[in-house]
Design a protein around this nucleic acid. Structure first.
Lengths: 125, 125
DNA sequence: TGAATATATACCTTGACGGGAATATTCCTG
DNA sequence: CAGGAATATTCCCGTCAAGGTATATATTCA
């Protein structure tokens, strides 16, 4: 948790990634994608224990991924778009590249071999 | 590490998320986005110690996020597109919704209140 | 007010993970 | 083959996070 907060300054996307790294939390998020749900529903659907679900929801909530709306004794949790949008934005520069393959790997390797050769020749006996 | 593998069956995107949850690893990935690099370069640029960088690269590699290409004593690491693509695909259904706001939160809340009222009326004294 | 429902919190324990430092491995060069 | 450079691996340690169980809090209803 402190980890999340420390990174939050640097980059909100980090908090999102940390929160989603936990499988059960990602499942919860996936579940809430369809529609908002009360804690009890999540407990049922995922077959987890209520306290753990509450704890996961807390983490998700602190990461801004979900928000709670009290209704009687229930708390209806729903997804918030922003963090996932930011994750999407983080992916943007990658998306733009992965057609032309990220790496000019070939270029880089060719480069290295060139330098290698030069070095070798420079020292040439 | 075992955690990543356990989830890998279920969903490769989970492995990606777990790997990226670590701030230094995400930094490494961001660094490799521009171009492939040798371990030493990463060490320099990020100001981390060589063993930790190697360890992080191992995790990233096992998650399929990077791959190594040996050149002399160096190992040039480059990004692999697939895992990030899958992350992108995972986001797809979210993207499609976050304009119309995920939640039919209002709907759901209205629903709950209706049920509430019905219940109340049903029992009505 | 007291019982019941829904949810949150506290406390404990355990396992995994990340960093630090030392060492092993691999490959090149002379 | 010896030495050096680049990288990987090992071992130890502290911390943190997740699960389990019990309990607290809040809200409704009778």
């Amino acid at each position: 948790m402190t980890g999340i907060f420390l990174q939050e300054y640097i980059c909100l996307v980090q908090a999102t990634l940390s929160a989603l790294a936990e499988p059960n939390r990602r499942q919860i998020v996936d579940l809430l994608r369809r529609k908002p749900r009360a804690v009890g529903e999540i407990v049922e659907r995922l077959g987890l224990r209520q306290p753990q679900v509450s704890k996961h929801l807390r983490v998700l909530s602190e990461a801004g991924l979900v928000e709670a709306h009290p209704v009687a004794q229930q708390r209806i949790y729903s997804l918030r778009a922003q963090p996932l949008r930011e994750l999407d934005e983080w992916l943007e520069p990658y998306r733009r590249r992965w057609d032309e393959r990220f790496n000019q790997l070939d270029d880089v390797l060719r480069d290295l071999k060139r330098k290698d050769k030069e070095k070798r020749d420079g020292h040439g006996k």
